[in-house]
């Protein structure tokens, strides 16, 4: 069984500021780390591998060369190999263009049974790349999985938590699954595995290594444009007093919460 885990590298902290002069995001001095949700996906893949020693776990990331750090981190956790998709032509991609290149790379890797994604990247926060890749691969998707196990030679069973429903889903492989963070606690790389990881293959694929339609890449292949980035104004609130006896006040609150569709 071959499992691909897609990982993104993100700034170490979410405390980013806006440069008051250029109005750009000030990311100076922010080290990159593996997107925390993606560690849950790596952990899930490793648990499947623990249960099936024939399984192979390949990490896949699209980004600049320094994304290799996250791939190394994932290999130190226990993944078998890493593939970095790095090319100027891929830069400035929105979720659609990102999903396209990742899907083409998964086809190139070949014979992939299961593709795992994190819940969302903690910087842009969209959670869109997983379903986009699933569509491009014409595969079934299970999003927001709260548990995942192999339930047959060619089948996975997952639980998925919707707002007020817990579903059990059974997918025939190949399939795409994105995972919630509650699913597991990611392991720390053991010193021995860190040592071993340096011998593991980290392949870099550039534009010409993949079968790509140039019009679908990077900024040119991205329908969306970020036109403005700014620091949010603190929400201005106006206090509505609840008055009278506790019973009267509680009843006013219930009416207000119903208007706001909170109950």
């Amino acid at each position: 069984m071959k499992i691909v885990v897609c990982i993104k590298q993100v700034p170490e902290t979410n405390d980013v500021t806006i440069d008051p002069v250029t109005h750009n995001l000030d990311r100076r001095g922010l080290a990159g780390v593996m997107n925390p949700f993606d560690k849950n996906a790596v952990e899930q893949a490793l648990q499947l591998k623990d249960a099936d020693s024939d399984a192979e776990v390949v990490l896949l990331s699209m980004g600049p060369d320094d994304y290799a750090e996250s791939l190394r981190e994932g290999m130190a956790m226990g993944a078998d190999a890493g593939v970095l998709l790095s090319d100027r032509a891929f830069a400035g991609a929105d979720t659609l263009a990102t999903g396209y290149v990742i899907a083409q790379a998964i086809k190139q890797i070949g014979d992939v049974d299961l593709v795992l994604f994190g819940r969302q990247a903690v910087d842009a926060d969209t959670g869109q790349v997983g379903p986009i890749v699933a569509e491009f691969l014409h595969q079934p998707q299970i999003t927001y999985a709260a548990s995942l196990r192999l339930s047959g030679t060619n089948e996975v069973t997952a639980e998925r938590l919707l707002e007020d429903t817990k579903q059990t889903l059974v997918a025939t492989l190949p399939a795409v699954v994105s995972v919630r963070s509650e699913l597991n606690t990611p392991r720390y790389p053991a010193p021995r595995n860190i040592q071993l990881s340096f011998a593991k293959p980290l392949t870099v694929w550039h534009h010409d290594d993949l079968d790509l339609d140039d019009s679908r890449l990077g900024q040119a292949g991205s329908p969306t444009i970020v036109t403005k980035v700014y620091a949010p104004e603190p929400v201005k609130r106006e206090l509505t007093p609840l008055t009278g006896t506790p019973t009267e006040a509680a009843s006013q609150l219930i009416t207000a919460l119903k208007t706001r569709q909170l109950i």
Binding site: P11, N14, D15, V122, D123, D125, P223
Partner: peptide
């Protein structure tokens, strides 16, 4: 839309 855990806002269009 918010990003970076709601620390930053951005405006996005699809022209």
């Amino acid at each position: 839309k918010p990003s970076y855990g709601d620390n930053i806002m951005c405006e996005i269009i699809c022209p």
